[in-house]
Amino acid sequence: MSAQPIIKLGVPKGSLEEATINLFDRAGWKIRKHTRNYFPDINDPEISASLCRVQEISDYISAGILDLGIVGLDWLHEVEHDKDVQIVSELTYSKTSNRPCRWVLAVGGDSPYQKPQDLAGKRIATELQGLTRKYFERLGIDVDIFYSWGATEAKVVEGLADGIVEVTETGTTIRAHGLRIIDEVMCSYPVLIANRAAWADPRKRAKIDQINLLLQGALRAENLVAIKMNAPAQRLDAILGMLPSLNSPTVSPLQDQQWLSVETVVNIDVVRDLIPKLRQVGAEGIIEYALNKVI
């Protein structure tokens, strides 16, 4: 008898789609999309997957249609679901995947506005009306907020808005449109969220915990590599002194007692400087290899 799905998973369609599928792949779940429908295959009979717009996933989870999903923190805050949605964990993808993004308040480069208070009574264009409204309410500033269907940066240039709240990573696109950032509204990053009823169900919770554990392990491994080498026994202390590691490096004897095998895990950013130094103090047969997960 085949196993029945325990978890209904929402996979975000759009900007988070590729990074999410790659992350699940490294964690051990192969998600395979179909060109004709929104229900990809996944190599786990306990999970059924649906490809959904990231803006809708929190609504589906709140309603109990989905049990688990990945959304941006910005879209989670756009509509409050405090009673029905549980944030399981942050999924801070590395610089090789999705980086945190910023929602910023921007105005024309030659405008007189220098701070949010200067926009009192003015028109603000944005795709995230709820988030923007909460931001200005928190500051006690009364503004006219209207929805932007796209090309938000152009709204100021065309004279349709006095300011915009728009998403950016570096601010390059905003500056290219002749705009100037005057405040940060929020920093957003992917989060794993669950329906609270699913979170309270022991069987579903066990599966959610398994998924979260392996996703976090895959994320942690993105910035780490393993290094293995042969080390002269007489130079062991010097070599160990050069090795940053998660824990104490593994040192094993070799058949030739004048040599030892040393293995450790280090941050990927230090490897290019570390390997030449290890070579200089006598290490040989240095091997670097990637990691799928670090738990």
Rank of each mutant, 00 (worst) to 15 (best):
V157Y: 07
A198W: 08
S188K: 09
R53V: 04
S58L: 05
G140R: 09
W103Q: 00
G130S: 07
D74V: 03
S48R: 14
A19S: 14
W29L: 02
H34M: 04
S261P: 03
L278H: 03
V191Q: 07
G28N: 05
H81C: 00
Q257H: 13
P12F: 06
P100C: 10
A151Q: 15
A19W: 11
V104N: 00
A3C: 06
D44M: 06
D273L: 00
Y38K: 11
T20K: 03
I65T: 14
L224I: 01
T168F: 08
E127C: 10
E90W: 04
L246G: 12
Q114G: 02
I42W: 02
R123Y: 06
D201T: 11
V167E: 10
Y289N: 01
Q216P: 04
E80Q: 04
T35N: 13
Y289T: 01
A154R: 12
V191H: 03
K293W: 01
I6W: 10
L128H: 01
D110I: 03
L213M: 05
S248Q: 12
I182S: 02
I227M: 11
H177Q: 01
N230K: 14
S89M: 05
K13E: 11
K134D: 07
L240G: 05
N292D: 05
V165M: 00
R235A: 14
P253S: 14
E184D: 13
D144M: 00
